[in-house]
Computed example of a mutant assay.
Amino acid sequence: MAQRKLEGKAALVTGAAAGLGAGIAEVYAKYGAKVCMVDLDPAVEATADHIRELYPDAELVTVTANVADRDAMVAAAKLAHDTFGSLDVACCNAGVCRLAPFEQMSDEMRDFHIDVNIKGVWNTCQAVIPYMLDEGRGAIVIASSVTGDIVADAGEAAYAMTKAALVGLTKCLAVEYADRHIRVNCSQLGYARTPMVEKMAVESNPDNPEAAIDDIAVGVPMKRLARPDEVGELFAFLGSDEASYITGSQIVIDGGSTLPETMSIGTN
Score class of each variant (00 low, 15 high):
R183W: 05
A143S: 14
D179Y: 08
G155P: 00
V184D: 00
I182W: 12
V175D: 11
A192L: 15
V141H: 08
V146T: 15
A154G: 08
P206S: 05
P195Q: 03
V167S: 03
R183T: 09
D179Q: 12
T147W: 08
P206D: 01
D149M: 04
A143I: 01
A178P: 13
A174N: 06
V202D: 05
R193E: 06
A157H: 03
M200W: 03
R193A: 01
Y191R: 11
T162E: 07
D149T: 14
A165C: 07
A201H: 11
G190M: 10
L169N: 04
T194K: 00
D153C: 09
S204C: 08
A158N: 10
A174T: 07
S145C: 04
A143D: 11
R193I: 02
A154I: 07
T170H: 03
A143Y: 01
G148W: 00
M200E: 11
A143C: 11
E203D: 15
A178I: 10
K163P: 05
E156R: 11
D179W: 03
L189N: 02
V202H: 09
T147S: 12
T147M: 14
K163A: 04
C186I: 06
D149I: 11
K163T: 03
P195Y: 06
A152S: 15
A174Q: 01
K163V: 02
R183A: 09
S145V: 07
N205Q: 10
G168T: 09
M161F: 11
Q188S: 05
C186W: 08
S187V: 15
T170I: 08
D207F: 01
V167D: 05
R193Y: 00
H181Q: 14
D149L: 02
K199A: 14
N185Y: 06
P195D: 02
M161R: 03
D153Y: 15
L189W: 13
E198N: 00
V175A: 13
Q188E: 11
E156A: 02
T147C: 14
D207A: 10
C186S: 13
A164T: 07
V197A: 11
D207I: 02
E198T: 05
A165S: 14
P206I: 12
Q188G: 04
R193Q: 08
G148V: 00
I150L: 14
P195L: 03
E198Y: 04
A165L: 01
V151A: 07
T162I: 04
L189V: 12
A174D: 07
